[in-house]
Simulated scan of single mutants.
Amino acid sequence: MEDDGKYKPVDHRQILLPLREAFEDLFSQTYSRKQNLTFLGHVQTCFRGKRWQDLLKLMDHVCKSALAKEVQDKSNAASLQEQWEVLASKLNQTQQQIRACETAMVFAFVEGTLAQAVRKGHWILLDEINLAAAETLECLSGLLEGTAGSLVLLDRGDTEPLVRHPDFRLFACMNPATDVGKRNLPLGLRNRFTELYIEELETEGDLRILVSDYLKCLNPHRNIISGIIRCWQNTMFSYDSL
């Protein structure tokens, strides 16, 4: 199960990717994206070409211009000004990290899949959730608390919670807690899910759909799929007879 992030050795690309994404998002809120497609294309070209210094200069120039710019939408001016100030601070920190990368290995906090999904509003599936550590389950419980659930990245030293995006969705699956080493979810967490019980696939038609879809990249012959199904059925029959 993916954690919510950890400190890892990073290169220029890992450092600059979240900054570039934040820059483009804020740029589109402040300026017309349609009228600046050439400029945004230049930003992406610098990033793909690993022209890090050119990329930093572009973002720094726009950032300074935005801070000095009088926003026409007065109702949104204060919010945009504050966001550009935050971005300017992040840009300054990133420039220092880039300089440090040139002389030594740099470690930075890299968000895990769960943290990114919470922040960006993605959907995420957690497999075998009942095998997760108790601390992880406690973290998930807080994340699913009502409509105001959040996640605190303690490993990064955050004190402010990462607010759950309204589009974020969490799915989880687990086998029944009947096998050795399996356990039920704590009721406090289990009650936060809509629970569906899926019967084990047994009919040949259902098994054929599953195998065909799983191996579709190999384009297996129908006889091979039938052989896999017979093998599974014989194995399960032998197991149940023990």
Results as ranks from 00 to 15, higher is better:
42 H>Y: 01
228 I>V: 15
134 A>V: 15
91 L>T: 06
180 V>Y: 14
161 P>F: 09
26 L>N: 14
8 K>H: 11
140 L>S: 01
210 L>D: 00
79 S>V: 14
70 E>M: 00
65 S>M: 09
94 T>L: 00
222 R>Q: 13
161 P>G: 07
222 R>S: 10
196 L>C: 06
174 M>V: 08
156 R>H: 09
61 H>E: 13
98 I>A: 00
201 L>F: 06
85 E>H: 14
136 T>N: 07
202 E>F: 08
101 C>E: 12
236 M>L: 12
59 M>A: 04
66 A>G: 08
67 L>R: 15
201 L>S: 09
214 Y>K: 09
106 V>Y: 07
1 M>W: 02
130 N>L: 00
81 Q>P: 01
151 L>T: 02
78 A>I: 07
68 A>W: 05
159 T>N: 10
171 F>H: 08
202 E>S: 12
65 S>I: 10
207 L>D: 04
127 D>Y: 07
78 A>G: 03
156 R>D: 03
51 R>A: 13
17 L>V: 12
182 K>N: 13
70 E>W: 00
51 R>E: 15
73 D>K: 09
20 R>K: 14
235 T>M: 04
110 V>Q: 11
172 A>Y: 02
168 F>L: 08
39 F>Y: 15
100 A>K: 12
161 P>W: 09
89 S>P: 02
156 R>P: 01
201 L>M: 07
150 S>T: 12
80 L>W: 08
91 L>S: 00
37 L>I: 11
8 K>Y: 12
204 E>D: 11
189 L>E: 01
49 G>I: 02
41 G>I: 07
216 K>A: 05
99 R>M: 11
128 E>L: 01
234 N>M: 10
214 Y>C: 00
146 G>D: 06
175 N>K: 03
145 E>N: 07
56 L>W: 02
124 I>K: 03
163 V>F: 11
27 F>G: 04
220 P>R: 05
148 A>M: 08
89 S>F: 09
5 G>T: 11
20 R>P: 03
67 L>D: 05
192 R>A: 00
103 T>C: 03
